[in-house]
Every structure is written in C-alpha cells, then in structure tokens.
Nucleic acid binder design. Sequence first.
DNA 1: AATAAATGTTAATCTAGATTAACATGATTT
DNA 2: AAATCATGTTAATCTAGATTAACATTTATT
Lengths: 194, 194
Amino acid sequence: MNTKPLLDYISKYITLTDEEEVFFISKLTYRKYLKGQYIVQQGDICDKTSFLISGCSKTFYVDDKGQEHIVLFAIEDWWVSDIGSFITQTPADYNVQCIENTEFIQFSYQDQELLLDKIPKLERLFRKMIEKALVSTQKRIVRGFSLNAKEQYLYFKQHYPTIEQRVPQYMIASYLGITKEFLSKIKSQILLEQ
Amino acid sequence: MNTKPLLDYISKYITLTDEEEVFFISKLTYRKYLKGQYIVQQGDICDKTSFLISGCSKTFYVDDKGQEHIVLFAIEDWWVSDIGSFITQTPADYNVQCIENTEFIQFSYQDQELLLDKIPKLERLFRKMIEKALVSTQKRIVRGFSLNAKEQYLYFKQHYPTIEQRVPQYMIASYLGITKEFLSKIKSQILLEQ
DNA sequence: AATAAATGTTAATCTAGATTAACATGATTT
DNA sequence: AAATCATGTTAATCTAGATTAACATTTATT
C-alpha cells in the first residue's frame, strides 16, 4: 500500500509521532476500483471515508426523475464520502462512482472512532478536512449565484483543467447544472469569440 | 453575560473541566445587535464566530445585479459566520444581518486559536459544529435537486415553523430562490388545495 | 475493417419561473 | 386620521435554459 500521498497530505495539518503513524497506517486499507464501480450508493450507509490516490470519481445525486446531478469530481489528493451519511450512519443522499480505474486509501467509521480515541490530534486534521469541504461548497454556491452558465464553465475549465480533459462533456454539463446540448452551445460560442 | 445556552450546547459534544470552562468563558464576548445591523459584511474579513442567544439573523449573498440570495436564517442556538472568511481570514462572500434585535456570544479568530491551544478537546467541538453545517448545506442542495419550489416551501414551513412566522415573506422567497410574487402564488395554491 | 455504443452537435420548440406594472392591504410615523 | 412605507397580490408578458429529435462523430467491440 502506497501511503505516501496520504501521509504527505496529513503532514500539512498535523505532525504524528512514529508510533502514532504506525497505528494510523494499521487502520488504513487500500482498494482499487474499476471504472464504473461505486464507492457509495445513495440509500446505503456510507461506512468509509476514502482518500483518492489515482484515478477520478464523481459524486452525484439522482432525483426522482432519474436525473443525475454531479456535485463533485475528485482526483488525486481529494477525500470522498457522503459526509452526512458517514457522520450520522444514516442512508446516503449521494453516490460516488469511479469514472476511471481508481485507487483509494480508506478507513471505516469504526476505525475513525478508534483513531480519534488513540490520536486526539486527528480531531484537528478531520476538522480541517471538513472545513475545506464546507468552504468549497459555499464558494460553489456563490458561483451559482453570481455566474451564468458560461462563466461557470470558464471558471471550471480554468481551475480544473485536468478534470475538464479527463471527464466526458455530458458529465461536466451535469456538474454545471445544464444540459450537454447547452454546454455544447456555450463551447461553440466561446470558440467564435476567440 | 448569559452563557448558559452556549454551555448547554457545548455539553452535548464535550465535557469541560471547571478550569477549562472558566478559561473558555473568559474568551467570550456578549454583544447585542439592533434589527438591521450587520455581524458580517461581504468583502470584510469575518473575524468572529457568533452563537445566537436570542433574535434572528439572515445570511445572504448579494450578486452584481444587487439581488439578495438568502442561504440561512439563524435563530436561538445556531452559529453564524462566514466560515470560509473566518478560517482563511480572507474577504467574506456572505453578509450576516440581524432581522430582529439579536443577542450573540462571540469569540474572535485569535481567541479561537488560543482556545484550541489551551483546550485541545475544543477541536472536537469545532469539528462537530462544522460537520453539522456541512451536512445541512448538503441536505439543502439535495432538496434543491429533488423538490420543486412548492415542495421546498412546504419543507421549510414544516421544519422551521417559527422562522416562517417571524420573517417577512419576501425573505422566505429569497431563501427559496424564488420571487415573492411566485411564493405568493404558491401559498394561494396551497390554500385552495385544503 | 465493420458494427455497435457512447458522446457530441444543431436547430426547433417548450416551459418554469422571472419580470413588470398597477393595485391592495397593513403597519408606522407625523 | 392622513400620509408614508413595507409587504403582498394579481395578471400579462418575457426569457434563460430545457427538451426533443434527427443527425454526426468518435470510441469500443467483434
């Protein structure tokens, strides 16, 4: 198991002793998913939090009409889970599905409790992780208010150029809350402008 | 300063020793705002987190066209701040304004750091607070996907009956992301159905 | 290489909700 | 009790973006 990316990530927030690091690693599991596989399915209880090592995933909600709404793409160094479901151990609202073959390092809900018990300074790490998630959610809400579809697409393209390349266009449309047809229109418009 | 509501709130998540409690209280300040006053203004740096003791506030974003978008009403026992601005000490995206005379207990960014230093178990409290905020944000996003305007209004009315009574209708419309005219239409429709 | 499946494009049409404007009511202020 | 201000209502019109459908292209499978 290649724990380096995760340990590097963690070291930005807290410093573990050797002993703590060993215990921490002992609670981690490595898992490889194939393209199309689900890490979380809406309705299930999300029993693990996953740190993405390689690949790409999408987090999305399917409404009554079967419409998919993507809320997040994750790539290297991102955490994924349905946080609401994980925290309260109730059914998940969201799905997380791999859109490439994807590797994760994961820990279970129970092991998170053990980890927090044994290494209280992880509280700080988890706080920081959740803060980051909350901030990016709130920033995205603000973009939804202040930018039109085209501006949101340009923002996405500029800030996540890798994702824009890796992910099919209809998924980007779903992420932006527009149809693929409309995104297509936007893209041709942008081309004309240049 | 009436710290009881806050201490009661905290005791749901952690237990402070007497000494810790004294130190904690020493870093709190009490402040009364008049109706219309701002706790946070977008563009300012949000330097404090506020726990609402009595009254009511709205958190909202004003777009380029001057349009107000309410994202949260807060009443007794809720925390308010622009979390992104508070954490990163960068300009706030949101405004928080009192819609009644309102009392808060507050602590500053600097004192939060002091508090976390002296009482590490507060990490857990703050983690839990932010988890709650993130979960309710994500739940609200799901409602946005799965419910139409009328269903969202009914959800709001059912879950926050107090707020529905206290707050002018045009603010509820803004919270629901619709015009007051349309909310009015919805309400008359609901009346007809009964 | 041929076929099938997935994804993208174009263009016509549709619709939920927004906008506008004129009037109504209820609450404050003088 | 007028006058003013805040909020609500009704109804006509407008529009951003959605939907549909037919076709095009790219990618995966045989």
